[in-house]
Design a protein around this nucleic acid. Structure first.
Lengths: 345, 345
DNA sequence: CGAGGAAAAGTAATCGATAAAGTCATCGCC
DNA sequence: GGCGATGACTTTATCGATTACTTTTCCTCG
């Protein structure tokens, strides 16, 4: 920058202004500067700029597992939108381990990112209070935390549970099981939806039909296999299963098929996530779509809103509507529910 | 930092030294500093540090598509290793568009990343020459560029082609087709391997059986469907297909099944990538494993080597050995080839 | 007893930009 | 013709650390 200034006989600040499109500069000078910048293939130093402006143009993303298609999809749409606005994404996975998640967040905080976007697997809010004290803006993804009024983007999880369970009821399932996850909001609310749908239909909630898995985002297929193993021992055997997410459902399906059951005739299975390979599976998997892409886009929108407003804005909660996607794994007879759609992913 | 120094009656430089474990500082002072740092939950400003040291502790990753399980897996293992060494990953996807890729790389260059890791979809080397001129170290992933002696990590693609094609020959296929990709190294070399295997077995190479797809990493399933559509019109119809990658293979499989063909009886299909869902598909998919995780790990290793050595090091090329994974989509009779393994992903 | 040397802390300069305020023409307008 | 407004740049100070030297202290040893 100094060099350019010297070459052109102007001050560095002039260059700086040209590069930031500051109106102060005359057209002729501007041209000359830009030409020289091109010639030298010069780019301003972000670290220096960041030091003085206090902004890094970096957004952090912490998710349990980048390999999980749901998070990969969120990451992708998030990154697309942010990039168009000059922001980049730093990613980090917590492996669904609260300890590791805390470490990662601490590391990222040290880098003075402009915002942090987190799909947290923690159940305590202490960490987030600290972030608020530091005035580090953040957005929660997919999982809410009790007692925290923060920015949040996710799907209406109770509706997910209801949609899936009602669908199973409508196709004639009498003994509906649920493979649930740990103590975080999506798992709890989907469970709630499951129970509510059963109750509304006048069916009993049977604890034996609810299997809890501790980890559902890493190694999910294996957990699904395991959970289904337990369900198959129940007497009488369930004839429909709503799984917290699709990878679990895939595992469950594998196990059931291996045991010689027919899907959906003997056992209907539905998951959640509507992953891109759902329709290419051994039995194409019915699922509740949770709008992964929209989640990423909305999170990006909120992030940009925060970053563009000078003042701290009031937290925003975005709840997206889930959508039932029926495929072979629950196709016993025509489903009657209104909110149904077929889809090739 | 100033505050801490004032509070403790020492100079800022002392604090700085403590935080970097400089040996200059006495134990007692060190303790006092560390205590105060904990109390205030203080973290040094990366931008400032980066400005003076010239290092950002950031590594850039540019891939065609984060949603593609191969790249997601590479990104994950890469990020895991780097993170343990204090580096973070900035990700960006090029959508398999050379223009966009160039823009992205330019953006990332401006940020003075410590290294750039690129799975390039470009066919020209000009961009990389520029990077060399700027002394920006970089590592190529998966795709090599002609005339560029750069760091590279990938699988032996000719071996991939040979392995897959030989396998099809061994299970008795007589008319073996190939769905190939655009003009970049993995596609070309796999094609080469395919041809070589055919020739070695005394079989003719039939151009009609080679279908080229322009894009193979975004929207691959759709392209697979399309390509298989063309193959099914060939007379006589092929009885075995080697697809450049697994998503293409999934698309191809879908199309073939939709046309009422039996897999593998009427048509055997093999892909490449050994994606995590391969064994849960309508017909579990045979594939050539390209060691995604190892690719990420090796790339990370090279990156760290570059970053830890003061001098510029000589470029390193890592070629990993592919491995044949046989599943139902090619299971006509026992395969006889040595390098075979069954695997649950 | 004083030179020499290690240990512990401090000084000054610098990294590459930006923000805010200051300078100096030029110009229009009553 | 003088005054304020506007346009086009420049000056000065600062962001928060680090590096390369100094300085001070104190201890050892010939």
């Amino acid at each position: 920058m100094k060099d350019i200034a010297r070459d052109l006989g102007v001050s560095v600040i002039t260059i700086s202004k040209v590069l930031r499109n500051h109106p102060d500069i005359g057209d002729e000078t501007r041209e000359r500067v830009l030409t020289r910048v091109k010639e030298l293939d010069y780019r301003p130093n972000f670290a220096a700029r960041s030091l003085v402006t206090g902004r890094s143009y970096l957004v952090g993303l912490v998710v349990p597992d980048l390999l999980h298609p749901f998070f990969a999809e969120v990451a992708k749409s998030l990154s697309d939108v942010l990039r168009k606005n000059g922001y980049y994404l730093i990613v980090s996975s917590s492996e669904e381990d609260p300890e590791l998640e805390e470490q990662e967040i601490n590391q990222l905080l040290a880098r003075r990112l402009d915002t942090l976007i987190v799909a947290s697997c923690r159940s305590t809010v202490e960490l987030f209070f600290r972030m608020e004290k530091q005035e580090m803006p953040y957005v929660l993804l997919d999982r809410q935390l009790p007692g925290l009024s923060a920015n949040f983007v996710g799907v209406d999880d109770e509706a997910v549970g209801m949609l899936a369970t009602r669908h199973l009821i409508e196709i004639g399932c009498k003994r509906i099981a649920h493979i649930r996850g740990p103590e975080y909001s999506p798992a709890l609310q989907r469970l709630e939806g499951y129970k509510r749908a059963l109750t509304q239909a006048g069916m009993k909630i049977i604890d034996d039909y609810i299997i809890a898995e501790a980890k559902v985002d890493v190694d999910s297929r294996r957990h699904g296999v395991e959970a289904m193993g337990q369900l198959l021992n129940r007497k009488p055997r369930p004839d429909g299963v709503f799984c917290l997410n699709d990878p679990l459902a895939v595992g469950a399906m594998t196990r059931a098929l291996d045991e010689g059951l027919r899907i959906p005739e003997d056992l209907a299975i539905i998951g959640c996530g509507n992953l891109h390979y759902d329709d290419a599976l051994r039995v194409p998997l019915s699922s509740v779509d949770q709008q992964s892409r929209r989640i990423g886009e909305e999170a990006a929108r909120i992030t940009l809103r925060i970053l563009n407003s000078k003042t701290t804005c009031t937290p925003e909660k975005v709840l997206l509507e889930p959508q039932l996607i029926v495929r072979a794994s629950t196709q016993r007879r025509a489903a009657k529910h209104a909110n149904v759609r077929r889809r090739h992913s």
